[in-house]
């Protein structure tokens, strides 16, 4: 008979207990701990997901500033708006699906319309919850949040950028929706990154193709660009971390320099990054071929996250394949 507890297999998809494997979430807690230590009036609220989003780390450092709302997301969002009226800066986190969809009206009416500086962190966005299924997927959140007046929408692409984005926007007067993946984000900016709200980061220029990606899609898009370059294609990537306000100048510059544009997002192709880019091009009368890559207005299959990325061609190889088909079409 063994006396030791069995350990969770490191390949497990389990949401809990593997905080060490979630650098993205560690970066969020770290930024909030720093800001609190520096005297910012931070309050962190979550809905029974402090292990899943790693905010337990913040609670350990600042227990009095951590408010547990239990499985009452709508109450949490409205209460966060109330907290903000008292001069506090609430960071309100839960699954993106529950935040953007279940609490849509509380966010519109209490947070966005009242223009309270609540920071909403929608984590496990897109299809990153894999086989938990469509109830737990959020492929509509960018479109919903983008359509709310006063709302800023940011989808950081790696832990360092998430950390920088939280810090850089701490004094932003209105509400912000931060889109996070499942925390296991691969590193893009090894040596940190400067975050400027509404200013895309260019990774090379391309005369054949510019790829414009956001959030969790940036890393595989960068890898896809490498694969395409090996085939002699001139391709650059824009890390469009701010979906609203969109960096229209960067989009237009990309359109001027490249024959074609392709957006990449872990989101419905309707209404998110692809929609936002299309709006800019159309309004400026730029006749560039644009392909919007993402989830094609459908609900996802069941499967582990990485398997789903492969299936929906949202991994590096898939994005490269989609780009090649687009270039050859």
């Amino acid at each position: 008979m063994t006396t030791t507890e069995p350990e969770l297999h490191p390949d497990s998809w389990h949401l809990l207990m593997l905080l060490d494997q979630a650098p993205g979430f560690a970066a969020i807690s770290q930024a909030l701990i720093e800001l609190t230590d520096e005297g910012h009036p931070i309050a962190v609220t979550t809905a029974d997901l402090k292990y899943s989003n790693g905010l337990v780390r913040f609670q350990e450092k600042h227990p009095e500033r951590f408010l547990q709302f239990g499985i009452s997301e709508q109450n949490m969002v409205s209460a966060s708006a109330g907290l903000a009226t008292t001069g506090l800066l609430p960071y309100t986190a839960t699954f993106a699906s529950f935040l953007a969809l279940l609490c849509c009206e509380q966010i519109r009416t209490d947070v966005a319309y009242c223009n309270q500086p609540v920071r909403l962190i929608g984590h496990h966005a897109g299809i990153s919850l894999g086989f938990y299924g469509t109830s737990h997927h959020a492929t509509e959140d960018l479109a919903i949040m983008r359509s709310m007046a006063n709302m800023t929408v940011i989808a950081p692409s790696d832990p360092a950028q998430f950390h920088a984005a939280i810090r850089a926007t701490v004094n932003h007067p209105g509400p912000i929706y931060f889109r996070a993946s499942r925390g296991r984000d691969p590193i893009i900016y090894e040596h940190g990154v400067d975050f400027q709200l509404g200013r895309a980061i260019a990774h090379g220029e391309g005369s054949d193709l510019m790829l414009i990606a956001t959030g969790s899609s940036v890393h595989p898009t960068l890898a896809a660009a490498e694969q395409l370059r090996e085939q002699g294609i001139s391709v650059g990537v824009l890390d469009m971390h701010t979906v609203k306000p969109l960096d229209g100048d960067a989009v237009l510059a990309a359109a001027r320099g490249a024959g074609r544009l392709m957006t990449v997002e872990e989101h419905n192709v309707l209404g998110g990054l692809g929609g936002a880019v299309a709006e800019v091009l159309t309004e400026e009368g730029v006749a560039t071929k644009l392909h919007r890559h993402g989830i094609k207005d459908e609900y996802s299959l069941i499967g582990p996250p990485t398997h789903l990325y492969r299936h929906y061609e949202l991994d590096a190889a898939g994005i490269a394949q989609v780009a090649l088909r687009f270039l050859n079409a």
Binding site: S78, A79, A81, T85, T86
Partner: peptide
């Protein structure tokens, strides 16, 4: 809910 937030803020 909003009132609860204000009470907690106090």
């Amino acid at each position: 809910s909003a009132g609860l937030g204000m009470a907690l803020g106090g």
